[in-house]
Design a protein around this nucleic acid. Structure first.
Lengths: 182, 182
DNA sequence: ATGTCTTTACCGTCTGGCTGGTACAGTAGA
DNA sequence: TCTACTGTACCAGCCAGACGGTAAAGACAT
């Protein structure tokens, strides 16, 4: 009957993302999130015992989604040279297109309590290490990855001076270079 | 006699930057800033009539510093091909090294009230336009610029998985590519 | 030089609204 | 009846900003 009735945790996480987008990442409050997902504050706090847990949950889901995208991306690239880099670029691109705003949790968490970012930092360190070990030209691979990160950060801060389609073209270009130039 | 007695506005802006670094960009409060620069809240509000003005002041100074760095960088590169790109990369690198933390104002402003970022967006748009018009390979130039931006954003979010010296090497590498590859 | 008047730059307190978090009484389904 | 969850009422702390001082430094007239 109801397809939109995902589990309550995901409903809440989605709502939090929307609030962060509408009000600014630093103005995410429990009341607003509860209201946005049509739930009472009590209900919200039943699912996430406090604000830190909510933010951590957002980051956790982001990381998990990103990782699974990378894995599937990598599987379809099996064996190709620089598969790791290509999968990372692909995951960044897909993830951003599928749900612009997922990355807002980074801003929200970092604004509220930078310590919450530790798992993100670990994940990034792991990716970076793989990039160094599995790329034919590690420096160039790092640069291409950083450019993709730059695209993401411009997007979440609302600073991008290029259109959506130009952004997509730039992602394409990054992938293309990762085939040709190294 | 006293060199550290800059004008009060700059003292306050510096203090605000320090607070943003210590407490997290979203926890910048007027009380903390006043305390950090050894001034009362009343005194602070005399210099900046409200919080928005303080944040806007931080962004304004950031933009101004960045622009002046780009200008001087560009002057010393006069006539070289892709001078614009090189100046942008140089300014990003210098600025970040001179005062890691300048860019925290971006996070603070964006967390508090995204609208404050409008001037930043305009400036970025202008830079991007110049990059398109004055580069021999606009796409590649954009990618190198985005990589530099990625480095900055990793730094302000405390996510960089590479050391300071690796970061410097990456900046070097970016400049090198901007000479060679286009 | 003396007294008054203004301006500048700042101080410290107060307040009302918002926020995170708690307590608890309820309710629907198994 | 037990479990899983909802929703209301409430509180204590924090925050932005308003406001009423005040001390020091001129300005101006006498």
């Amino acid at each position: 009957m109801s397809e939109s009735k995902a589990n309550p945790r995901d409903n809440i996480l989605d709502a939090a993302q929307r609030v962060a987008g509408k009000e600014g990442a630093g103005n995410l409050t429990l009341d607003k999130v509860a209201c946005e997902c049509g739930m009472s504050k009590g209900g919200l706090l039943y699912n996430f015992p406090n604000k830190d847990a909510l933010l951590a949950g957002m980051l956790d889901r982001l990381l998990e989604q990103h990782r699974s995208m990378m894995d599937s991306e990598e599987k379809s690239l099996a064996g190709e040279p620089n598969a790791c880099l290509k999968a990372m670029l692909g995951a960044n691109a897909c993830h951003e297109v599928a749900d612009p705003g997922v990355y807002l949790s980074l801003l929200a968490a970092s604004a509220h309590k930078p310590e919450l970012m530790a798992p993100v930092k670990e994940t990034l360190a792991e990716y970076y290490q793989r990039l160094q070990n599995e790329s034919s030209d590690p420096d160039m691979a790092t640069i291409l990855w950083l450019a993709a990160e730059g695209l993401i950060f411009h997007a979440i801060l609302g600073l991008a001076p290029y259109s959506q389609s130009e952004k997509n073209r730039l992602f394409q270009k990054l992938m293309q270079i990762s085939e040709e130039a190294l």
